[in-house]
């Protein structure tokens, strides 16, 4: 594992190298509240990239705008050589972007297996779907054991595993992950992140990972962006970011306090 790269070396500048996903001056708002104030960044093909930021910085909004849940007012989103802003969510899923939403958002009364089938909704190849289902059961064997149980009966960690698996079933080129560690124990968090790196390496899936708590994210990703009130304020390799004082203070909680305690108070947000 060689995520830590030498600062300043050539391969630490991914912006130039074949980005699969690129945002340029994206602005988005909820009614009068402007959540994104001109966000630009790039995600290189096959890499894990993280976006860090405090509560309300706009991280989830970035992901929702990419997956077409929210239409940006300005700016372009380019995916695999094609502009996708303003397209419908199902068109975007078909193109190869899938989203693991914040707070898991499983279908509570459907079984685990039915949830997975819904992840493959846009596909019409039963053979390939069965193969992928097998693969996610291999990633998370507990899901196979519980495949006939309702998703609402799963524990938080298992629901997170289901949410990730479900997103994998559309066979995405890019997977957007919104705080997969939210509310999980440190041990479970580690397991989830282990699988995330495995997905990235074994299937070459590009991963855009949003995190509030930066420890795991900086460990697992190659490049990182820091988002503050709707703007990107830092952009560097994760190795470099981890050395910066503000990052250490605000996101790694190396000074007294830290953001960790706040996370429990997050409410489920209403949409629309």
């Amino acid at each position: 594992m060689n995520w830590g790269q030498t600062p300043g070396s050539d391969d630490s500048a991914p912006l130039g190298s074949d980005p699969i996903l690129e945002l340029a001056n994206v602005e988005a708002s909820y009614g009068p509240v402007q959540a994104l104030r001109g966000v630009s960044f790039a995600v290189p093909r096959g890499k894990i990239v993280t976006v860090l930021g405090a509560n309300g910085a706009g991280k989830s909004t970035v992901l929702k705008t990419i997956s077409g849940i929210i239409d940006p007012q300005k700016g372009q989103i380019r995916f695999d050589g094609e502009e996708i802003q303003g397209r419908s969510p199902d068109w975007i899923v078909r193109r190869g972007i899938s989203h693991v939403p914040e707070g898991r958002e499983v279908f509570p009364l459907l079984t685990v297996e039915e949830n997975l089938r819904m992840g493959a909704y846009t596909r019409r190849d039963p053979g390939g779907i069965a193969e992928d289902m097998e693969r996610v059961y291999e990633y998370f064997p507990i899901l196979r054991e519980r495949s006939r149980q309702e998703a609402g009966q799963l524990s938080g960690g298992q629901q997170q595993m289901l949410a990730i698996s479900r997103a994998l079933l559309s066979r995405p080129k890019v997977m957007l992950m919104d705080e997969p560690s939210l509310g999980l124990s440190p041990l479970l968090t580690q397991e989830i992140f282990r699988i995330i790196t495995r997905i990235n390496r074994e299937q070459g899936t590009t991963i855009l990972l949003v995190e509030q708590n930066a420890h795991m994210a900086l460990d697992v990703a190659e490049h990182g962006y820091v988002l503050e009130v709707g703007r990107i304020v830092m952009d560097d390799t994760c190795a470099n970011l981890a050395k910066k004082e503000d990052v250490q203070e605000f996101y790694l909680g190396m000074k007294a306090g830290g953001v960790r305690g706040e996370r429990r108070w997050k409410k489920k947000k209403h949409w629309r």
Partner: peptide, 9 residues
């Protein structure tokens, strides 16, 4: 919302 995320129209 999750249905939208799955690409269900």
């Amino acid at each position: 919302l999750a249905a939208y995320y799955m690409g269900i129209p």
